[in-house]
Write a protein that binds this DNA or RNA. Structure first.
Length: 520
RNA sequence: GACCCCAUCGUCCAGCGGUUAGGACACGGCCCUUUCAAGGCUGAGACACGGGUUCAAUUCCCGUUGGGGUCGCCA
């Protein structure tokens, strides 16, 4: 019997079948099977940074592993020496770690497994399920082009599959270079996808693809099958751009007489213009979002909700909550659009509930970079306490962490200008005396706390016979340089008496100068 | 072009034969008030189309259209 035509029985619990086998589908996995320890992996290639699409796939894998008490592994697919760069690996691992995901075992570097891959190429050749192809690249390109022109699917024409043993031997002895192609049998192939249910493909649609290069090294699909098998991967969860690869890989599993894992193909993330997210189009690195002030828990949460939901309306969720509710089979089939606005909205909510230590850690270096504080200043315990109070006051209105630098800078420096619109609107001539009067009232107040300040302001406003607002707005502008921000009295108390008074009087002077300039 | 996948507000998600089709982001209005980029309330906004099946289709089936993916000695 020719191996390439025999029907390989995959393991009974498996989800592969051919059309000649009407084996029952097992979409509903038994509890026993669901709870069996699983092994999943994320396999990035170091041809660039980690973009949100890959990050999301990693998250789904990670959740699946945690949910089923399994292992989450990382394999670096760095066999393409042309494109892979070693220094691109660490940033990818860092980004995964930032999101809270690390490999449960040593990271596998595919490039170190070349010999093993080659041994499987030999097995394929020995069993007769693969053959040598001596066709030149030029001829192949012509065939492909012609097929496209004639509106047929471009597929290898099997010229070399029909070579006699003698012909092959002769060519090999003549030193002709060859690649190895797998022989795809007749029939059709169906597998049950955990997300997409049954998918069928005619085997005739799949060409005898190349599994090994002229130099004998394995190509992607073979290497993946070999490594997944040897790593004990039970569930392959990846982007649905791999569906065609899945069929190819299934044929490799069969040719090798190995059990195939379960597959789940998750929808691809799209850009607002509906194109697939890619590095080419300048889509951001996951780490870049982090650098811009998106919290890792926000990214994790948001990415999960692209194509999946807990069904009960919850959106802002902690990792543990998501883990609890996650279910691969609940992943949608359609491709969602990545929306930065919603990501930011999620971030706003996560900033509100984030541990203060995390925000402190994130904000401190940014303050220093902005030149607002020094490392000495940050080292001081009282200052840390002060910073924590400022963050707590500001976190209610922050969308991304960087907002803090622009909207809270005045807590750390006297060097700030006045918002232009605010200047025109609030720093009118009469504000000068009002600021002076209010500063005096604050000065003579017994204490510098919420109640005392508010009482002082009410009293002064009444004396001047104007609304509180006539004092409040100029004061806010004088002390913060901004027209928006937290409650005024909270702000003043935190800035402190000395600085508040100085800034109010400084603003009063500024207004008087402005006045004389306008009317000389 | 061939093959595969998909199809509910602009976007994300809910809905699993009978609903005033729900929530979130974004957008508009109103309120609060000391500001808003905060908070509260509210409004507009969707079942792509055509056939079936059914007493009844957004829900099931088929087709059309539209979108996405794949078609390398890349991964």
């Amino acid at each position: 019997m020719r191996a390439s035509f025999c029907v390989i029985r995959v393991r009974p619990s498996n989800n592969l079948m051919t059309n000649s086998e009407t084996k029952a589908h097992n979409q509903d996995m038994s509890d026993e099977e669901t709870n069996k320890p699983c092994v999943v992996r994320i396999a990035p290639s170091p041809s660039g940074y980690l973009h949100v699409g890959t990050a999301r796939t990693a998250i789904f894998n990670w959740l699946y592993a945690r949910k089923h008490n399994g292992k989450f592994l990382i394999r670096i697919e760095d066999t393409d020496t042309e494109r892979s760069e070693a220094d691109l690996i660490q940033p990818i691992l860092d980004a995964l770690k930032w999101l809270g995901m690390e490999s449960d075992e040593d990271i596998v570097y595919q490039s170190t497994r070349d010999e093993i891959h080659r041994s499987y190429v030999a097995k394929l050749l020995d069993s007769g399920s693969a053959y040598r192809c001596f066709c030149s690249k030029e001829r192949l390109a012509e065939v492909r082009e012609l097929a496209m022109k004639e509106k047929r699917a471009p597929r290898y024409d099997r010229t070399c599959a029909n070579l006699s043993e003698q012909e092959v031997t002769a060519k090999v002895e003549a030193g002709d270079s060859f690649v190895i192609r797998i022989k795809i049998p007749e029939g059709s192939t169906t597998y049950t996808d955990m997300v997409l249910s049954d998918i069928t493909r005619e085997n005739s649609e799949i060409e005898d693809f190349v599994v090994a290069r002229a130099n004998g090294s394995a190509l992607y699909n073979l290497a993946v099958v070999v490594d997944d098998h040897e790593m004990g991967v039970t569930d392959v969860i990846r982007g649905n751009d791999h569906i065609t690869n899945t069929f190819k890989q299934i044929h490799i599993y069969r040719a090798l007489e190995l059990n195939a894992p379960r597959f789940a193909h998750v929808p691809l993330l799209l850009r607002p213009d509906k194109r697939k997210i890619s590095k080419r189009l300048g889509d951001k690195d996951v780490a870049e979002y982090g650098a811009d002030g998106v919290l890792p828990q926000t990214m994790f949460n948001y990415l999960c909700l692209l194509g999946w939901s807990p069904k009960d309306g919850r959106e802002i969720m902690a990792r543990e909550e998501i883990m609890e509710a996650f279910d691969v089979q609940g992943i949608n089939k359609n491709n969602p659009v990545f929306d930065v606005q919603k990501l930011n909205a999620f971030n706003k909510e996560h900033i509100k509930i984030a541990p203060i230590e995390q925000l402190l850690e994130l904000i401190s270096p940014k303050l220093q970079e902005a030149g607002l504080v020094s490392s000495d200043w940050l080292a001081d315990e009282d200052n840390q306490l002060y910073l924590a109070k400022v963050i707590d006051l500001m976190r209610e209105r922050m969308r991304i962490v960087d907002d803090f630098i622009v909207s809270a800078g005045f807590f750390f420096t006297d060097e700030f200008g006045y918002d232009q619109k605010g200047d025109r609107k609030q720093f009118v001539p009469e504000s000068a005396d009002r600021l002076t009067a209010l500063a005096d009232a604050f000065d003579s107040a017994s204490t510098f706390d919420l109640e005392a300040l508010e009482a002082a302001l009410d009293e002064v406003a009444e004396k001047h016979d104007v609304k509180r607002a006539a004092f409040i707005h100029p004061t806010r502008l004088a002390v913060s340089g901004l027209t928006v921000g937290p409650g005024l009295f909270d702000l003043l108390v935190l800035v402190g008496k000395e600085k508040t008074l100085a800034r109010m009087r400084r603003a009063a002077d500024y207004i008087r100068t402005k006045k004389t300039e306008v009317t000389p």
